[in-house]
Computed example of a mutant assay.
Amino acid sequence: MTQRQANMDWMLKDLAAGVPQTRHVVLLSADGLRMAQYGTDTDVADRIAAACAGLQSLAAAVGSELPHSQGQMRMVVIEMDGGFFYLMAAGAGAYLAVLADEGVDAGLMGQRMRDLVLRIGEHLSSPPRQEDGTSR
């Protein structure tokens, strides 16, 4: 775990602790790489991050059909049997994903996610990769 990941993990813990029924919290880059996680193991966090990259791309494509839209996804909420999935834009090139049990207060989760992004959004970003694969 890098120092940057360790510094971000506590932020995600704060979100999970503040909203009962939270199961997994993952911070990911736009290309689906896990940047930080809380409440889940690395394999699950990696699968969530990869799936979210496709979902945010799909949401942006659908959003581009709206008049006056640039196709920028802000938030996706999916209610399914057993719980909720949230995906929110969280800074330049970064997204915040949360899986929660069905007993979660859906409004509180959305509010706490927005609060987290607003409070520390500059830390929740993924710089673009250079051609050699490194971040700037």
Rank of each mutant, 00 (worst) to 15 (best):
G110P: 03
G107E: 12
R4W: 01
M11E: 06
H24R: 13
R34A: 04
D132H: 14
S29C: 11
M8E: 05
G63P: 04
R34S: 02
G63A: 09
A106N: 12
G39S: 08
V77Q: 06
E102M: 11
L33G: 10
R114K: 08
A60N: 11
G93Q: 13
V19K: 01
Q5Y: 07
A89P: 01
A61G: 11
S29P: 06
L15R: 01
M11F: 05
M80I: 05
V44N: 11
K13V: 09
T22K: 13
G63Q: 09
V19G: 03
P127A: 05
T40D: 10
F85I: 13
M8N: 10
H68R: 13
G82F: 03
H24M: 11
G63D: 09
G63Y: 04
S69R: 07
E65S: 12
P67K: 15
V62Y: 03
M109Q: 14
S135F: 03
M73I: 00
A94E: 12
L99Q: 15
M88Y: 01
L87W: 07
Y38Q: 06
R119Y: 05
F85A: 14
S64H: 11
M88A: 03
Q130E: 13
L96I: 01
Q56Y: 00
Y86G: 06
A59C: 05
T22S: 15
D43Q: 13
L99V: 14
E65V: 00
G110N: 09
V98T: 11
R4C: 00
A100E: 13
H68V: 02
E102I: 04
D31Y: 04
S29V: 07
